[in-house]
């Protein structure tokens, strides 16, 4: 424990400190947005957004390196593609009907393919694993401010539209009948989900971000009596997973993203088992 504490306070090892701070701040966004994703049952949409992001990362890298557009960083590309995919998916949910899952599948794998092609055509060496599985070495001081800004944005939007978001998730048709513009609200929710995913792929990566978005909220759902409670519990659970995962990966010298997700998955399975045991009694 003292080793970890020493590493966290070591001025020469800022990445661990940045990683932990970003992770703890990220827990707020994950807890709030994850709750909506779970109760609205749109984790497949969040999964599609996260995988589409590779197209933005690859595109950004290509434009930066080949076209010389220095301001178009991989993260800029990721934000643009994430928001674009949120808009497309909102339209798909509304119009595609029974073909929705096929279209989502096409976007999911198509986005990844485009991203990988851009990366393959970009000269020089680039390791996509950092984005696919996360790498806290990539977290900068700037990211901490971005995540803190995202937390403030999400808290402000959710506080403002809490009742409408609750109605959208519980009974979309009724919310529409009461005059709520459900289409726009659904789009807003998907855009916030997209931004949350973009800013947090540095920690756990594109492939595993969906687990950290949904598992803490799914665990919280078993104990919460209201959405507010579910958000608070999910935030706390997520913070515990990230702290424990970073600590364990430091001691065991393992990739932090994978360790965090394994802890989250184990805790979720345990909560399911406890739930079933309690139900039998």
């Amino acid at each position: 424990m003292t080793e970890l504490f020493a590493a966290l306070t070591d001025p020469d090892l800022p990445f661990l400190r940045y990683g932990l701070l970003t992770g703890l701040l990220a827990s707020i966004s994950f807890g709030i947005i994850g709750t909506f994703v779970v109760v609205r049952r749109i984790s497949y949409l969040a999964g599609a957004i996260s995988h589409c992001i590779l197209a933005g990362i690859g595109g950004g890298l290509y434009l930066q390196t080949v076209a010389g557009i220095s301001w178009f960083t991989p993260m800029t590309g990721a934000v643009i593609v994430a928001l674009l995919s949120a808009v497309i998916l909102a339209q798909v949910s509304r119009h595609a009907g029974q073909r929705e899952d096929s279209i989502i599948g096409a976007l999911w794998s198509g986005g990844m393919s485009i991203g990988y092609l851009f990366i393959a055509k970009t000269p020089g060496y680039f390791d996509p694993n950092s984005y696919l599985f996360g790498n806290i070495l990539l977290i900068t001081k700037q990211d901490i401010f971005f995540v803190a800004g995202l937390d403030i944005l999400i808290l402000a939007v959710v506080c403002l539209f809490y009742n409408k978001l609750l109605a959208l998730c519980f009974d979309e048709e009724y919310a529409f009948l009461r005059g709520v513009r459900t289409q726009w609200l659904h789009l807003l929710l998907l855009c916030l989900t997209a931004l949350t995913i973009v800013l947090l792929i540095r920690i756990v990566g594109i492939i595993m971000v969906i687990a950290l978005l949904t598992l803490p909220a799914a665990i919280a759902g078993g104990f919460a009596a209201s959405i507010r409670q579910m958000m608070l519990i999910a935030t706390a659970v997520c913070a515990v997973f990230i702290t424990a995962g970073l600590g364990a990966s430091f001691y065991l010298d393992l990739p932090s993203g994978s360790v965090i997700i394994l802890i989250a998955t184990g805790a979720y399975l345990l909560s399911l088992f406890l739930d079933r045991s309690a139900a039998k009694k």
Partner: peptide
């Protein structure tokens, strides 16, 4: 959804949505 964490009062309050911009 049988697991949705919401109170009876919150469900009934939904009838009053739409009155204000924020709800």
């Amino acid at each position: 959804d049988a697991c949705f964490p919401i109170s009876a009062l919150e469900v009934v309050c939904m009838a009053r949505l739409g009155g204000t911009f924020s709800g």
